[in-house]
Nucleic acid binder design. Sequence first.
DNA 1: GAGTTTGAAACT
DNA 2: CAGTTTCAAACTC
Length: 454
Amino acid sequence: MSTKTISISESLNTSLHKKIAISPLKSPSKSLKPVQTVTMGGSHFKTIIPLATQPNVQQIQVPGSRFTYVRLVTSTTANPTTLQAGGPTTSTMQTAKPMVVNTGTVRMSVPIAPAQTMKQMVPKSITTTTQVMTNAQTQQRLIMPATSLPQIQPNFTNLPPGTVLAPAPGTGNVGYAVVPAQYVAQLQQSSLVTMASSSGFHTPTGVQTQARLPVNGLSTAPDSSTRPRKPCNCTKSQCLKLYCDCFANGEFCNNCNCNNCFNNLEHETERLKAIKTCLDRNPGAFKPKIGKGKQGESDRRHSKGCNCKRSGCLKNYCECYEAKIMCSSICKCVGCKNFEESPERKTLMHLADAAEVRVQQQTAAKTKLSSQISDLLTRTTPISTSGGGRLPYTFVTKEVVEATCECLLDQARQTELSGQPQALAERLILEEFGHCLMRIISSAGKAKSDCINC
DNA sequence: GAGTTTGAAACT
DNA sequence: CAGTTTCAAACTC
């Protein structure tokens, strides 16, 4: 991977003429890319962290460095290109990549994640303070100046995400980042924002950060791009080995339950060293484990295959099963039941589907019941008797009865599907009926009380 | 929640 | 490369 230098000249004040070093970028993956940059050699690396000059963006200055550090996120497709910053459309969209900004004194590695659901991630609050652009891939990106240099901004609409425009040595602390909007949302949720202060780079002891990134550049679950990743519980690895999911995903730990965690900015040196060690051991350590299979095979498959011995590849111990893909020819598993025609697998799938449907039905029924009661509270006039303690009969309407019946039917279906004995089923249904009654009574009582007070 | 099982990662 | 150990997540009770 070579580093290319690009001049920014057009539309810039000549005194601001700057050199930009942009490295070719790598493909998106589960892993972050600082790993790629570390292998390039170089005496000093810095993990780039968010800009701070915009209301929703954090800028952190590392002592001893003249540069504003940023963390960048970019799209999942496209190829590396050479860029002419400020020029006409000389660039094409690029892949999520790590970037090395060679400023002459400091090399900064930029972990970059694929931005997948950018449209929905763009916070409304920031669109007024940052320039939002839409490219052919319908991804929105932001140009966020680390310091004010507004005349540059309009010329970067064609830069790929993940591009850092850094100044030549001696030109001051000015840097630009083209960042997909999703990352701004990450920033808002990340404790990176709270851990950094505008006066300097101070991270309180124990503070952990975790920028959420899609796993493998793919969504392993329908909502994986929006759901916070599970916190790790590492106790011995210092979160600096691939045992740690956060580390393996190229993320900082944040809100984890780990002990003696070194996977944070506070232990940047150790972290980068660990990344290098992992890469020395396995250059593909941070590459996606789930990739495209050979022709004729499933689109997605485990890059190395699993080695399961006892789980039949039908438990989450199995990386293939966990990724919701079938085992392939490269797996070395024993007694595998994770293949297309496997009856065990089909049964598991049916059970999982049924469970999901049950949960949805039950949730819907309960929501409807609550809605009916709530609706009644607003449109009925409770009948209160003077001290008689009777509840308003108007609450037992046709709608409430129907909603109650739905709850009971759902409970019946659930017990039937799970093969519960009849006696237990009846008991569960009765209990559900009791819950419904309690809700009705509670609502009616509240309405009565409200009426008395009014 | 504690203890067990599991398989990937790390180590020898 | 193979065997063993370490580790943290998944799972069971």
